[in-house]
Amino acid sequence: MTQDILDTVAFDDDGFMEDAAAWTEEIAQAIAEALEVNLSDRHWDVIKFARQEFETQGEPPTLRLITQQTEVSMKEMYQLFPGGPAKITANIAGLKKPTGCI
């Protein structure tokens, strides 16, 4: 049922939101479901940090920055967002695809 909300949102060819400003927590929840991620408080810490970082820097944070600035370690990031933690974080946070090398 929560999947329906995704029909109201514009995504690019890679499934990332076109307009980060249109993001809501409900959309995040729906994207996470589509990506088979069960959001816990730890996930939200990371997602909120990513949002905040995007608002100040204009870019989604690198994985390294996330592990430096939040309490979530590299190991945990791979457990929370298996299969590409930086990209999946940005995807759920409604941000564009990250391009950082680290």
């Binding site: 995504f11 690019d12 499934g15 589509a34 990506l35 088979e36 299969g83 999946i88």
Partner: peptide
């Protein structure tokens, strides 16, 4: 335009990916 999905995260399948 593509809705987010597991399949779009290339190689993200830890068993069958790259």
């Amino acid at each position: 335009m593509a809705k987010p999905s597991r399949a779009l995260h290339q190689g993200s399948d830890e068993t069958g990916g790259r």
